[in-house]
């Protein structure tokens, strides 16, 4: 417990951590201020007009669906006959749409919480992932490079305990900062929507979706922190983690992708870590495989495929666990010179 207290204090006192938190608050403040400055509370007239437009749009969608169904029944088509109708009318069924038009879609210059909470949260998660990775890498990297770990091992000559305490402290601290930052972030924008914008129609499904993104985002932050920590431990230096990620992105995500396309390998996105990160964060991601329909010429071919969060989580967990286990195994036997 004393070791964790000491590590927590050491982590909190690090300049880099403080700098990253200041930058987080700065980004948070700028985003909130610009949102506040660019938004106003909609008047009753604006709201009524937006609701009318949403209702009209919805009605238009229903009419289009009606026309399609009428065509299938062989009845005369109401309205504009030249309008394209798909072979499968379910494509036009409003009930099957991901979302229906709402009043917020027609409010201009108004910050609507229900519309913008999700992208705002993605932005925060992206920052926190970067925060977690860099803090994780620099925390152990600087300690290994400066001899801080050696000093500590002279006091606590249990390598795995020391490294485990450091990793545990890091994950606990990153999780705490992430939870507090994201709650403060969402609450602030909720308040902005209340006083200078439009909260939008919230229901249990909205909060559940937002909560799911939040939970998955926090998990991703922890995985990023552990990955940065593990790579820097293996490489003995913060730069090792940064270099490894840069090399991976350039060599595999960029170069490898080009090579896979030239070789016409099926579903290359399945081989990219970024796809799994996206799938985990968004719940699922749909990709198009250009090789799937190459031989299909006279019939409909859907070359798309989906990556869902379950395999994405498995891949990310395996990767992080593998790197962490390797880091502990190497650190256990390494000569600290």
């Amino acid at each position: 417990m004393n070791l964790i207290r000491a590590e927590l204090e050491r982590l909190g006192a690090r300049r880099f951590v403080q700098l990253m938190i200041v930058l987080l608050m700065l980004a948070f403040g700028v985003t909130a201020a610009t949102t506040l400055a660019g938004s106003h509370q909609p008047s009753a007239v604006e709201l009524a007009e937006a609701q009318r437009q949403a209702a009209a749009n919805l009605r238009g969608m229903e009419l289009e669906h009606e026309r399609c169904l009428a065509r299938d029944r062989g009845e005369p088509l109401p309205g504009d006959e030249g309008f394209y109708l798909p072979p499968d009318c379910s494509e036009l069924d409003p009930a099957l749409r991901d979302r229906l038009p709402v009043a917020a879609d027609y409010l201009t210059g108004v910050f609507t919480f229900t519309r913008q909470a999700e992208p705002l949260l993605y932005f925060l998660v992206a920052y926190l992932v970067l925060f977690g990775f860099l803090v994780g890498a620099s925390y152990i990297g600087a300690d290994l490079n400066s001899g801080g770990v050696v000093n500590l091992l002279l006091w606590r000559p249990r390598r795995l305990t020391v490294l485990g305490a450091k990793l545990g402290t890091l994950l606990g601290a990153v999780l705490t900062v992430s939870v507090l930052a994201s709650l403060a972030y969402l609450v602030t924008f909720w308040v902005i929507a209340q006083v200078a914008g439009y909260p939008g129609p919230t229901n249990a499904a909205f909060w559940a979706d937002l909560g799911a993104i939040w939970g998955r985002g926090l998990t991703l932050v922890l995985l990023a922190a552990a990955t940065g920590f593990a790579i820097a431990t293996m490489g003995r230096h913060t730069a090792a983690a940064l270099g490894a990620v840069a090399a991976y992105l350039v060599v595999w995500e960029l170069g490898g992708r080009i090579v896979l396309q030239i070789l016409e390998v099926a579903r290359p996105d399945q081989l990219m870590l970024a796809s799994y990160v996206g799938a985990w964060l968004a719940g699922e991601v749909r990709f198009w495989d250009s090789t799937a329909c190459r031989t299909v010429v006279d019939s409909y071919c859907d070359g798309s495929y989906t990556l869902t969060w379950q395999p994405a989580l498995a891949v990310l967990l395996l990767l992080t666990a593998g790197l962490s286990a390797s880091a502990f195994a190497i650190f256990r036997r390494r000569d600290l010179i």
């Binding site: 070791l3 000491a6 204090e9 006192a13 400066s146």
Partner: peptide, 25 residues
């Protein structure tokens, strides 16, 4: 023990450096 030239975090004070070691130990 001290082994070769020990390194410490530059932005920590001497007191804090020792305090953290005392806490950990």
């Amino acid at each position: 023990a001290i082994v070769e030239s020990p390194q410490f975090y530059g932005n920590f004070t001497g007191y804090r450096t020792l305090r953290l070691l005392a806490l950990a130990g």
